[in-house]
Design a protein around this nucleic acid. Structure first.
Lengths: 197, 197
DNA sequence: TACGATATGGAGGGCCACCCCGTTTTCGCA
DNA sequence: TGCGAAAACGGGGTGGCCCTCCATATCGTA
């Protein structure tokens, strides 16, 4: 973990009590709104729900992506922890697949997560330090490398590709009523391939 | 083809000359704008470019999805024709994969197409008659059935899933500089599966 | 308590989708 | 050819969104 963890992501320096309070309120409101409406929930409504002015929201989170990063931070860290646990699994190939399924499951039950990860992959904002996207890619790389060395995975596959695929699936199924099922089926399809064994 | 083709999609009845003229102008402007900016291009700007009022655009195309349907109609029909040609290919499995690649290629070179197809899958507007989504699903079904009967494809895979996967890939890679390459690689990954042969 | 640094939020600008309704254009028919 | 009704148009209004400015309020401390 490249950054000196202790506080989450934006804890530049000692902040005033009201600032921290508003930060927390915004985060809570954003979490709720994004769960209901997805990654493109209205920032104004989030501010309204949090009981702050929209300027305050924008001061704490200069971009939508920053807000998403903060909202999903702990979910992503949980996935990284899962990856770490699976890294000693006796069956590296199975471990990788299990983890990819866990990623998809998280994305299905946390609207906006997939969008956030894909988005994070695309703009590679250097001011963001360790983004959720970076964290999860690094966590997954371990699993993929082990699976590859064990011969359980075709060579030439990168972890970025694999995760992009998983997130693409989650994103495309997010609006369906049976999102989790569909995502699961599509992931299975992608992992097993189209042709028969 | 369930609907009595002759005129494109919305030609309810004899329209006045100016109406048809504006319709065509809007379609041309939309095609250009969507190619540049993707499926969420500004409708107002499209109207502006077409030299019509925004009300006129909304009258001809009551929803964004309708506009997308019209813009991509011929591309989709071309894909359906390709499917038809491939339906007599001596290698059904290969034919299916070739066609899926063609779908991905079209999506890469026609920004917004994937979004339109996925969106069309989701709202299943009954007032739309044969949507692009329906057309392409029906065209693909033939290919999948043949491939399945030939034993070239695992059973239990539906054409909807397969196309959703392809479109998800296209959508997720659309904003990357090397979109077509990435889409190709991801599709290959999905078709071949993760495990070694 | 008083002061400077920090944080706030209402107001406003620019953009957008969508609709209302007075005006203009078209076209069939006399 | 000319006319009147039906069809189509589009300016402008409404409300929403994102984002910024800056006058004001709050906090922490000397």
């Amino acid at each position: 973990m490249p950054h000196d963890s202790r506080t989450p992501i934006p804890p530049a320096r000692p902040r005033r009590a009201d600032a921290r309070r508003n930060y927390d309120r915004i985060l809570a409101a954003a979490t709720a709104a994004i769960a209901e409406q997805g990654a493109d929930a209205s920032l104004e409504e989030i501010a309204r729900r949090a009981g702050v002015g929209s300027a305050t929201l924008h001061r704490h989170f200069p971009s939508r992506q920053r807000l998403l990063e903060a909202v999903f931070r702990d979910k992503v860290e949980a996935l990284c922890a899962t990856a770490h646990d699976l890294a000693t699994d006796p069956e590296p190939g199975q471990a990788l697949v299990t983890w990819l399924r866990a990623v998809a499951r998280h994305a299905s039950s946390n609207r906006g997560l997939a969008a956030s990860l894909i988005q994070g992959a695309q703009d590679g904002d250097p001011a963001l330090g360790d983004t959720c996207h970076d964290l999860i890619v690094n966590a997954g790389r371990e699993l993929l490398d082990r699976a590859c060395q064990a011969g359980a995975v075709r060579p030439g596959i990168s972890i970025s590709e694999l995760l992009k695929l998983v997130n693409a699936i989650s994103l495309a199924t997010e609006h369906e009523p049976d999102a989790a099922d569909q995502a699961d089926r599509l992931l299975d399809l992608a992992v097993s391939g189209v042709r028969p064994a």
